[in-house]
Design a protein around this nucleic acid. Structure first.
Lengths: 214, 214
DNA sequence: CCCGAACCGTACCGTACGGTACAAACACTT
DNA sequence: AAGTGTTTGTACCGTACGGTACGGTTCGGG
């Protein structure tokens, strides 16, 4: 069942957007971040992006296609840099873990990610869940894969210990994110401490080591 | 800032619904769970609940008022039983923690909770965020208060150790929920293991003890 | 210089839905 | 029995928005 996640999504288009289209999608993203789903109307986007509705429908099919394109486009922009040179040093590995967790929080708590998550969640009972699956496949699964490889590296060097990399990652995720993600999605404003992403990440990694440290 | 959470929400109506109104809200809930926000139309609700649109508007003001009423009504139904008799026994305390975590997962992962969260998240940029705040105040804050008192009890008896009860609760939350909540909101189907709520809760409490056990 | 493709802007259509109005049915009091 | 308030069902209005059509403009290639 988690296997099905690895099979490429037949879904649709493997995202080859022309520069013009990308510019339009950028405008769409801005509208979404600014005012939520209902702020993104075909007419409105056409107006602010200086394009015609007809082009929108030609490029993206229909409104749902447009939404999917926005999600695919943005999810494609987020790439976790694969672990840099990475000396086997224990201290630098821990630093990498903290950096990963910090980056994770930065992405998840970013306005555009929140807007896209809100959008996908709002549409989660339509169209066989296109948006939600897109976001999961092109977003979470990417990050999770990156995390697993990082953790595996640490285990290989005897720095941490676990049976299931996925499970270990999920614990790290839980320790770092807690309930902040859902609260932000609901429109809550984070506390002062919660805004210091690196500090949060550091504490999370500390606790992670107490659970999985070798 | 977290203080503001404790001041009663001026918001509106302190939820005194007539039986008739509750019946209608129950129908509304069913529609929401079944088909998401757009499935809950005033005409549709009037039809399935055998009431008139005029009554809906009389009772709830407008559609947003109706949505708020649905959220308030449902959130009001969920009550975490305050820690039962609770002998000071260490083993029963741990059992209570597991029971709490299990109940937390059962609520969060329930279809109605998911539907309400989806609804509130979808509306999170409108009306100064009425729904989101409602859900936070009448939902999460209640649960969090319950959790804090439980944890404080445990600390008082020297069973666990921490500085900030809220922080300890958030860690427990993160360990138990991980990324499952957001995945469910996005329409993902949980794994086999993730469906065994009590087992998940037990593992989470195990880890929690390794971090906060005395 | 001309042709065709792509694109813009605008106007238009159909519909779904929030909200209101109203007449008939019901309920409850005096 | 009459009167008053509430609820229902239906019909209606206005509007916002998805989707389509079309004339006018730009632009690259022959």
């Amino acid at each position: 069942m988690s296997m099905s996640a690895h099979t490429i999504d037949p879904e649709f288009e493997d995202i080859a957007f022309t520069p013009r289209q990308e510019a339009v999608l950028e405008h769409a993203l801005a509208l979404l971040v600014g005012g939520g789903e209902k702020a993104l109307t075909t007419a409105g986007l056409a107006r602010t992006a200086n394009c015609s509705k007809e082009s929108l429908y030609k490029w993206f099919g229909d409104r749902d296609g447009l939404l999917a394109a926005v999600v695919a486009y943005q999810a494609n922009k987020v790439h976790f840099p694969p672990e840099s040179g990475a000396t086997a040093d224990a201290e630098t590995f821990r630093t990498h873990l903290v950096a990963f967790a910090t980056e994770l929080l930065a992405v998840l708590f970013g306005e555009t990610s929140l807007a896209l998550n809100r959008l996908s969640i709002g549409q989660s009972n339509r169209d066989d869940n296109r948006l939600g699956r897109l976001l999961l496949v092109r977003g979470k699964h990417m990050i999770s894969a990156r995390a697993r490889s990082l953790l595996e590296a640490g285990r290989h060097r005897g720095l941490i210990k676990f049976n299931d990399a996925e499970e270990a990652y999920q614990v790290l995720y839980g320790l770092a994110v807690r309930d902040v993600h859902i609260r932000l999605l609901l429109g809550d404003t984070p506390s002062e401490a919660e805004r210091d992403l690196e500090a949060q990440a550091r504490v999370a990694v500390d606790r992670f080591y107490r659970l999985f440290g070798a």
